[in-house]
């Protein structure tokens, strides 16, 4: 999967929770959980949606990478390759 394809999945997963998420104001290395005000349930939903869309497994060990757009995108691009 290309970086762009993976980034699309990350954004889709986030907009399922925050439909009006403003990605223009969110840098690739900004921590989106605070910026988009995701609570624990939101974050869990994000991880589950992303895993489902990417057709890959994401678990606790991956959480440290699932905090920025760039980190999440790279992870999904690797996993879903």
């Amino acid at each position: 999967m290309t970086y762009e394809q993976a980034l699309d999945l990350v954004k889709t997963s986030l907009t399922r929770i925050v439909p009006d998420a403003d990605f223009t104001a969110l840098g690739p290395t900004d921590k989106f959980r605070d910026r988009l005000e995701l609570d624990s349930l939101d974050f869990l939903q994000f991880v589950e949606t992303l895993a489902e869309l990417g057709g890959c497994r994401l678990d606790e060990d991956d959480y440290p990478r699932l905090v920025t757009l760039d980190g999440s995108t790279r992870l999904v691009a690797e996993r879903a390759a």
């Binding site: 439909p19 009006d20 349930l41």
Partner: peptide, 19 residues
């Protein structure tokens, strides 16, 4: 539907807005 969810989240925050 998405617009309403976004609208409610902006006003109420994630703990109170409908999912």
């Amino acid at each position: 539907k998405r617009e309403l969810i976004a609208f409610a989240r902006r006003r109420l925050g994630p703990a109170v807005a409908p999912r």
